[in-house]
Amino acid sequence: MHEMSLAEGVLQIIEDAARSQGFRQVRTVWLEIGPLAGVEKEAMRFCFEVVMRDSIAHEARLEIVETPGQGWCMQCASSVPVAELFGACPQCGSHQVQVTGGNEMRVKELEVE
């Protein structure tokens, strides 16, 4: 389950931000997760709760913001929505689609005290 290591990475980002910005408690964490990121959202929620125990984010609420999958079709030279890796272009049916978004996970925002 790689979500555990992802949650540990989120905690590291939180702790680094707390050191540099001087906050003591995290109330809410917003994560942007794209559909092509390979992150199981429910597993991420579980791992987040486990990893945040005994940290400055021990009571933090996790909000997951889903970002859309986007790609560039080389055949029809268009930006298109992408629902899966290696899927066909919804406009022309070509499989020459390069993913340009929706394959990332990032900490978007923290609500802190």
Rank of each mutant, 00 (worst) to 15 (best):
G87M: 08
R24P: 00
A88C: 11
C92E: 11
P68G: 14
S79N: 14
Q98A: 11
R19H: 06
E63K: 09
G102T: 13
V80H: 03
P81K: 10
L6N: 03
A88T: 12
R27S: 01
T67S: 12
E32L: 10
E3C: 05
A7T: 06
Q98M: 09
E3S: 09
R53C: 02
V107T: 05
L11F: 04
G9T: 01
G34F: 09
S78G: 07
F46D: 05
V29A: 03
M74N: 13
Q91Y: 11
L36K: 10
V29I: 14
C89I: 07
I56M: 12
A77W: 13
K41F: 06
G101T: 12
E32H: 03
P90M: 10
P90L: 09
M44S: 04
E109R: 01
V29M: 06
G102D: 06
R106V: 05
P81R: 06
T100C: 07
Q75C: 11
E32M: 10
M105Q: 04
E59D: 07
I64C: 11
G38N: 08
V26I: 06
F48P: 00
R19P: 00
E111M: 08
I56D: 01
A83Q: 15
G102R: 12
V97R: 11
V39L: 09
M44Y: 09
M74Q: 10
A17S: 14
P68W: 13
Q98N: 03
Q70F: 02
V39T: 11
C89D: 05
L31N: 14
E40I: 15
H95F: 12
L36V: 13
V80F: 03
G87A: 12
A43Q: 09
G34Y: 07
I33Q: 02
E15P: 00
V80D: 03
P81G: 08
A18I: 09
F23P: 04
E49C: 02
L85I: 06
V10N: 00
W72M: 05
D16R: 10
A7H: 03
S79I: 14
V50N: 01
V10P: 00
E63Y: 00
R61A: 14
E63L: 08
R53L: 05
P35G: 15
L6W: 00
M52A: 07
E8Y: 05
M1A: 03
